[in-house]
Protein backbone atom coordinates (compact mmCIF):
# COMPACT_ATOMS: atom_id res chain seq x y z
CA UNK A 1 0.00 0.00 0.00
CA UNK A 2 2.80 2.38 1.01
CA UNK A 3 4.74 1.45 -2.13
CA UNK A 4 1.68 2.02 -4.30
CA UNK A 5 1.21 5.43 -2.70
CA UNK A 6 4.85 6.29 -3.38
CA UNK A 7 4.59 5.22 -7.03
CA UNK A 8 1.39 7.25 -7.44
CA UNK A 9 3.09 10.31 -5.91
CA UNK A 10 6.13 9.96 -8.19
CA UNK A 11 3.94 9.45 -11.26
CA UNK A 12 1.76 12.46 -10.46
CA UNK A 13 4.84 14.54 -9.65
CA UNK A 14 6.28 13.70 -13.07
CA UNK A 15 2.94 14.62 -14.69
CA UNK A 16 3.09 17.99 -12.90
CA UNK A 17 6.63 18.75 -14.11
CA UNK A 18 6.01 17.65 -17.72
CA UNK A 19 2.63 19.41 -17.74
CA UNK A 20 4.24 22.61 -16.42
CA UNK A 21 6.86 22.42 -19.17
CA UNK A 22 4.21 22.02 -21.90
CA UNK A 23 1.89 24.66 -20.45
CA UNK A 24 4.88 26.97 -19.99
CA UNK A 25 5.84 26.66 -23.66
CA UNK A 26 2.21 27.13 -24.72
CA UNK A 27 1.72 30.21 -22.50
CA UNK A 28 4.97 31.68 -23.80
CA UNK A 29 3.70 31.34 -27.37
CA UNK A 30 0.81 33.72 -26.62
CA UNK A 31 2.83 36.02 -24.34
CA UNK A 32 4.03 39.17 -26.17
CA UNK A 33 6.73 39.63 -23.51
CA UNK A 34 7.88 36.02 -23.69
CA UNK A 35 10.80 34.28 -25.36
CA UNK A 36 10.95 34.13 -29.14
CA UNK A 37 12.47 30.86 -30.27
CA UNK A 38 14.22 30.61 -33.64
CA UNK A 39 15.16 27.52 -35.58
CA UNK A 40 18.93 26.79 -35.76
CA UNK A 41 18.82 27.88 -39.44
CA UNK A 42 17.20 31.20 -38.54
CA UNK A 43 19.75 31.80 -35.76
CA UNK A 44 22.56 31.17 -38.26
CA UNK A 45 20.96 33.50 -40.80
CA UNK A 46 20.56 36.25 -38.18
CA UNK A 47 24.30 36.07 -37.48
CA UNK A 48 25.29 36.39 -41.14
CA UNK A 49 25.37 40.08 -41.99
CA UNK A 50 26.00 41.60 -45.41
CA UNK A 51 28.18 44.71 -45.48
CA UNK A 52 29.20 47.07 -48.25
CA UNK A 53 32.72 47.78 -49.49
CA UNK A 54 33.03 51.00 -47.46
CA UNK A 55 32.21 49.29 -44.19
CA UNK A 56 34.58 46.46 -45.05
CA UNK A 57 37.30 49.03 -45.77
CA UNK A 58 36.80 50.58 -42.31
CA UNK A 59 37.29 47.15 -40.73
CA UNK A 60 40.33 46.64 -42.97
CA UNK A 61 41.85 50.00 -41.96
CA UNK A 62 41.33 49.28 -38.26
CA UNK A 63 42.80 45.78 -38.63
CA UNK A 64 39.69 44.57 -36.81
CA UNK A 65 38.77 41.90 -39.34
CA UNK A 66 40.19 38.78 -40.89
CA UNK A 67 39.31 38.64 -44.58
CA UNK A 68 38.47 35.19 -45.88
CA UNK A 69 38.54 34.57 -49.59
CA UNK A 70 36.11 31.77 -50.46
CA UNK A 71 36.89 31.63 -54.20
CA UNK A 72 38.86 28.73 -55.59
CA UNK A 73 42.62 28.51 -55.07
CA UNK A 74 43.57 29.79 -58.57
CA UNK A 75 41.54 33.01 -58.22
CA UNK A 76 42.97 33.55 -54.75
CA UNK A 77 46.47 32.96 -56.08
CA UNK A 78 45.98 35.56 -58.83
CA UNK A 79 44.81 38.38 -56.57
CA UNK A 80 43.13 38.78 -53.20
CA UNK A 81 42.33 41.41 -50.56
CA UNK A 82 45.53 42.17 -48.71
CA UNK A 83 46.05 39.74 -45.82
CA UNK A 84 43.13 37.48 -46.77
CA UNK A 85 43.33 33.74 -46.17
CA UNK A 86 41.83 31.23 -48.58
CA UNK A 87 39.00 28.91 -47.57
CA UNK A 88 37.52 27.70 -50.87
CA UNK A 89 33.76 27.11 -50.83
CA UNK A 90 33.99 24.19 -53.27
CA UNK A 91 34.62 21.29 -53.46
CA UNK A 92 33.05 20.52 -50.09
CA UNK A 93 35.75 18.08 -48.99
CA UNK A 94 38.52 20.65 -49.55
CA UNK A 95 36.39 23.30 -47.88
CA UNK A 96 35.84 21.15 -44.75
CA UNK A 97 39.54 20.28 -44.54
CA UNK A 98 40.64 23.92 -44.86
CA UNK A 99 38.13 25.18 -42.29
CA UNK A 100 39.36 22.60 -39.79
CA UNK A 101 42.98 23.54 -40.45
CA UNK A 102 42.34 27.27 -40.25
CA UNK A 103 39.69 27.33 -37.52
CA UNK A 104 42.11 28.44 -34.81
CA UNK A 105 43.24 31.37 -36.93
CA UNK A 106 39.65 32.23 -37.88
CA UNK A 107 38.53 32.07 -34.23
CA UNK A 108 40.99 34.74 -33.11
CA UNK A 109 39.28 37.80 -31.63
CA UNK A 110 38.75 39.41 -35.03
CA UNK A 111 35.63 39.84 -37.12
CA UNK A 112 35.41 37.54 -40.12
CA UNK A 113 34.66 39.20 -43.45
CA UNK A 114 33.99 36.63 -46.15
CA UNK A 115 33.94 37.33 -49.83
CA UNK A 116 33.75 35.55 -53.14
CA UNK A 117 32.72 36.90 -56.55
CA UNK A 118 29.60 38.91 -57.20
CA UNK A 119 26.52 36.69 -57.27
CA UNK A 120 28.33 33.68 -55.80
CA UNK A 121 27.16 31.89 -52.66
CA UNK A 122 30.36 30.26 -51.40
CA UNK A 123 30.90 33.05 -48.83
CA UNK A 124 27.45 32.40 -47.32
CA UNK A 125 28.07 28.63 -47.40
CA UNK A 126 31.36 28.99 -45.54
CA UNK A 127 29.76 31.52 -43.15
CA UNK A 128 27.04 29.05 -42.19
CA UNK A 129 29.62 26.29 -41.79
CA UNK A 130 31.72 28.46 -39.45
CA UNK A 131 28.67 29.18 -37.28
CA UNK A 132 27.80 25.48 -37.18
CA UNK A 133 31.33 24.76 -35.99
CA UNK A 134 30.91 27.18 -33.10
CA UNK A 135 32.35 30.40 -34.49
CA UNK A 136 31.31 32.78 -31.69
CA UNK A 137 30.80 36.08 -33.48
CA UNK A 138 28.79 37.45 -36.41
CA UNK A 139 29.99 36.61 -39.88
CA UNK A 140 30.15 39.45 -42.40
CA UNK A 141 29.72 38.93 -46.13
CA UNK A 142 31.18 41.51 -48.49
CA UNK A 143 28.48 42.66 -50.93
CA UNK A 144 29.71 42.63 -54.51
CA UNK A 145 32.60 40.40 -53.48
CA UNK A 146 36.17 40.73 -54.69
CA UNK A 147 35.13 42.68 -57.80
CA UNK A 148 33.53 45.49 -55.78
CA UNK A 149 36.66 45.79 -53.62
CA UNK A 150 39.02 45.84 -56.61
CA UNK A 151 36.83 48.35 -58.45
CA UNK A 152 37.33 50.82 -55.57
CA UNK A 153 41.08 50.27 -55.89
CA UNK A 154 41.38 49.14 -52.27
CA UNK A 155 44.57 47.27 -51.30
CA UNK A 156 45.11 44.00 -53.08
CA UNK A 157 47.78 41.41 -52.82
CA UNK A 158 49.07 39.39 -55.76
CA UNK A 159 51.32 36.38 -55.79
CA UNK A 160 54.72 37.18 -57.37
CA UNK A 161 54.29 34.83 -60.32
CA UNK A 162 50.58 35.38 -60.76
CA UNK A 163 51.10 37.44 -63.92
CA UNK A 164 52.58 34.48 -65.78
CA UNK A 165 49.72 32.19 -65.06
Amino acid sequence: MEQNEFITTVRRGAVLVVGAFLFGIAANYFNPGGYRFLSPEAISESRIVEIGVDEAKIKFDHSSALFIDTRDGDDYFDARIEGAINVPGFPESLSEKTIKEQFRIISRPLEAVLYCDEGCDSAAVIGRRLLEMGYPRKVYILQGGFGAWAKKKHPLEKSPDAGGR
Binding site: L16, A20, F21, G24, A27, Y35
Partner: peptide
Protein backbone atom coordinates in the same frame (compact mmCIF):
# COMPACT_ATOMS: atom_id res chain seq x y z
CA UNK B 1 12.42 29.72 -16.82
CA UNK B 2 9.21 28.68 -18.59
CA UNK B 3 8.93 25.37 -16.72
CA UNK B 4 9.69 26.65 -13.21
CA UNK B 5 7.40 29.68 -13.53
CA UNK B 6 4.45 27.57 -14.74
CA UNK B 7 5.26 24.86 -12.19
CA UNK B 8 5.00 27.42 -9.38
CA UNK B 9 1.60 28.52 -10.69
CA UNK B 10 0.32 24.94 -10.97
CA UNK B 11 1.65 24.00 -7.51
Amino acid sequence: ALTVSMLEMVL
